[in-house]
Design a protein around this nucleic acid. Structure first.
Lengths: 204, 204
DNA sequence: ATGTTAATCTTGACAGTGTCAAATTATAAG
DNA sequence: CTTATAATTTGACACTGTCAAGATTAACAT
């Protein structure tokens, strides 16, 4: 199930087709978008025939789920790394979190779209494995925001869960508007982030 | 181009196919979602053959643009009607605006998804006509928020444009999370709206 | 080493899809 | 009534995701 034979795959069955498909899919998605991903072209990229894929993924949606799952792993890693930069005031950490979130989404627009987009989450198309990987991402945000509440830089009058949902909605909405280009220019990313931070911070 | 002959169309060419297609498309979209819309099934619904559509819309995207345009007209009408309820404090009006926005999106999820979704706005697939109809919607929000700034219930330290973008991002993000069911339950809509309002309002 | 089992990959096929060109029909204009 | 113009249909093409059946190869037990 892992690497069956370590190296030297030439005219193999294929070696590790699953990983190759994931790589190629992620690459094609990031360059052309989710909606332009064709399983047949993907098979061509990898040099394998069209329905070979079905021995590693139940269907196209399962493949997308797997790519999204990898995206979440990457997202969490980046976010945690950012959160561990110590010598900062809480307010600066919040600001950095906001800017980091938006910049990551703007740098990986297609992947962000896949991870947080409708096709996967709507109609229960997210499989259990993806949910298990995605949940820590939300939990991470919930923790951060609870912490900022306790540190006194966010209002404390509301349940942390609700506040997390609203703050995340702000970030998510901002990311979507920028990515989709809906009356929000990507030149003003930092301006918008600063404005968002100012609005989130407890005013006193 | 309008109604060629007023009434009594039976075994006509079809009468007014364009309108019939729009109606059928809107209906099918709202019941099954944008991604499930098939031009051929749509033609069946209307009782016409597959490529009749192409004499009224350049392609599928043009049809979707037209449906979205109708959605914006409806959205603007509803929003303006809500905004004209007089006897209220400014803060209550803001609250009502937020609740109204979210409830409308939750009541017309598929249409909202089409209007503000990626497939139309990304990659410049929104045609000029749609942009002309959509722009007043954004202008309407910009006006409202500028007004609330002047009335002193929103912070005045930021440019109205930026603040509009961020507030709209909050609403848009909330709508998306609820519609797509991404870790936001639709049972708690009002709780989340109240939380959002509390965060937006200038705290003093 | 050999025969068996199980995994992997390919080929052929099917039902869909959006879209175009050419042919057909009905409406409007002269 | 004839002509011109718009609306609609039929046939076709290239493409999509997915499945069933057959072929190929790896892993395993003896």
């Amino acid at each position: 199930m892992q690497q069956t034979t370590g190296r030297g795959n030439q005219t193999y069955h294929h070696g590790d087709l699953r990983a190759a498909l994931l790589d190629a899919a992620a690459q094609r998605i990031e360059s052309e978008g989710v909606e332009a991903l064709s399983l047949r072209k993907l098979a061509d990229d990898v040099g394998v025939s069209r329905s070979a894929l079905y021995h590693h993924f139940r269907d196209k949606n399962a493949l997308l789920n797997a790519v999204a799952a990898r995206g979440f792993e990457q997202w969490i890693a980046v976010s945690k790394a950012r959160a561990n930069s110590v010598d900062m005031t809480p307010a600066d950490r919040l600001a950095q979190f906001v800017h980091g979130y938006i910049h990551w989404s703007a740098s990986n627009p297609q992947l962000y779209d896949l991870m947080f987009g409708r096709p996967i989450w709507k109609t229960g198309q997210a499989d259990e494995q993806l949910k298990e990987i995605a949940f820590p991402a939300f939990h991470f945000m919930l923790n951060k925001i609870t912490q900022w509440q306790q540190e006194g830089i966010l209002a404390q009058s509301m349940p942390a869960l609700r506040q997390t949902q609203v703050i995340w909605a702000t970030l998510h909405g901002l990311a979507r508007l920028i990515i989709d280009g809906v009356y929000a220019d990507s030149e003003h990313i930092d301006d918008m982030c600063n404005c968002a931070v100012a609005m989130l911070l407890k005013q006193n």
